[in-house]
Amino acid sequence: MEWRTWYLDAILVPLALVMMLCYHIYLCVMVRTQPFSTVLGINTRGRKIWISAMIKENQKTNILTVQTLRNIEMGATLMATTCVLLCAGLAAVISSTYSIKKPINDAVYGAHGDIALAVKYVTILAIFIFSFFSHSLSIRFLNQVGILANIPNLDPNPSGDLFLTSEYVGELFERALLLNTVGNRLFYAGLSLMLWIFGPILVFLTVLVMVLALHHLDFVPRSKRKERQRKVDCRRASELPNGGDEDGA
């Protein structure tokens, strides 16, 4: 059957990966150029305000800061643990000799030879390993933020170190959350590629649905952006003298 030939894997799977990569490149460009049109850009701005406020009011909010960082760290730890368990499970499946493999292979569309299976499992394992690596680094930076954010009188600090400032702590916090986001997106890609075991068609359809869902979640709807811009314009107009007449006429 032609549906069992290798060209389905050679076309659909790379196309799905390129589609997801192009979407995230577009998302990064929008976050840098039009941050308030994306949920990530708005959240980044909110986190900068939050960490600055927590450091400024350290004597009053130190418990809140530690609890918030601990909650984020617990989420990253859960994701890292899940990646390790999935890698262990895939390794067990690769080394197993169960008879269930044969009926699965017989029902798979696309290539399912020894080389094809090796490529599939190595690709999936590599993505989950990189996801685990990203979450591990995120935990490391969150631990550093939890220590540095509770230094009294950080600006200026008692040692007179000009490099240890609230801006530096904010950068570490953003780096930790960026790595957490990267790890999550790699995890989503790994889950989609796990369906490659059953054929490339499922991978392509799953990635397509995932990109559409992520676009809906990552971007602010145009109607809300227009409404927000209208409120900003009205506020600016109300702050002008003589009821919004810039010329004062």
Rank of each mutant, 00 (worst) to 15 (best):
V39D: 06
K56H: 00
M19Q: 14
S131I: 10
G113H: 09
V84P: 03
A213W: 04
A88Y: 07
F36I: 08
L212I: 02
F204S: 10
Q59W: 01
V18H: 10
G243S: 02
A213H: 08
A149W: 09
I11N: 06
A149H: 11
R235Q: 00
F36M: 12
T68L: 14
V169A: 00
I25T: 10
N143C: 07
S238N: 05
V207Y: 13
M74S: 11
A10R: 15
L172S: 12
R235C: 00
V13M: 11
L21R: 09
C234P: 00
T44Q: 07
G190A: 14
G160R: 11
S99C: 08
E2H: 12
R47V: 05
S134Q: 13
I147N: 08
D106P: 01
T97Y: 11
K101F: 13
N180Y: 14
S138N: 06
L212A: 00
L162V: 08
V39I: 13
S99Q: 13
H112T: 09
I25V: 15
P241A: 07
Q34C: 12
G199E: 04
R32E: 11
R185M: 09
Q59A: 01
E73K: 09
G41V: 09
A189I: 12
R230S: 09
N62L: 01
L212R: 06
P156V: 02
W6L: 04
A80D: 02
A149Q: 13
K101S: 07
A92Q: 10
L179Y: 08
K48E: 02
A126K: 08
R225Y: 02
N71K: 14
I104M: 15
I42R: 15
S131L: 04
N143K: 15
L172R: 06
F133K: 02
F36E: 12
H24V: 02
G170K: 12
Y23V: 01
Q67E: 03
C22L: 15
G248E: 14
L64G: 11
R45I: 06
C28P: 04
G113W: 12
N180F: 14
D233R: 04
D218P: 01
N62Y: 09
I201T: 11
D218T: 01
T82N: 11
H24G: 01
E2L: 02
C28F: 13
S131W: 10
P200E: 04
M30Q: 14
S192T: 07
L214Y: 14
R222H: 14
D161K: 06
V182G: 02
T44G: 15
A91H: 10
Y188M: 12
I42N: 08
L90I: 02
R47P: 05
V39G: 05
E171V: 11
F187W: 10
G75R: 01
P156C: 06
A92M: 14
D245P: 05
C28K: 13
G75P: 01
K48W: 04
S238P: 03
L15A: 15
I139D: 08
P103K: 09
A249E: 01
L179K: 01
I100V: 11
G46D: 05
M19G: 10
W50P: 04
L193M: 15
T82K: 02
A10M: 13
L15W: 10
A149L: 12
E2K: 15
